[in-house]
Amino acid sequence: MAMDEAGGAPGAAKKFLYVNRKAPYGTIYALESLEVVLIGAAFEQDVQLAFLDDGVYQIVKNQSTDAIGAKNFSPTYKALGDYEVTKLYVEAEALEERGLTADDLMEITFEDEDDDWAEKPSINIVSRADMAKIMSEQDVILSF
């Protein structure tokens, strides 16, 4: 959808980007963002999530919080598909700087209603330049 259309017709879906830049558990940002995403999903907008800087740690696999007394909310990212949040952009440079690769991330998928419910990956690895471009194409950015 073109930006001017999105801004124009009332009721038209707007492009929302949640920018996640903090690792989980050290601060409350990651969990707060996830909760807002889940609540906001009810408004049926075009929702996308960006993971950059330490935010990539939010979706790494094998998180185990038993010994720090915090709830491990990483499994909840796998429910995003049920909430029709199916576009998760992860910055390649942010992974690389931290010694991570796409294989270190959880498998997050959605079932494509328009393709006979085929299971498809929600995670898209994008370059820093593409991430900047994605940000520049939004109607609304929510920063965490």
Partner: peptide, 10 residues
């Protein structure tokens, strides 16, 4: 599985 109670529509 997901550590949340689903919203009604979900």
């Amino acid at each position: 599985e997901y550590q949340i109670a689903p919203a009604i529509r979900v």
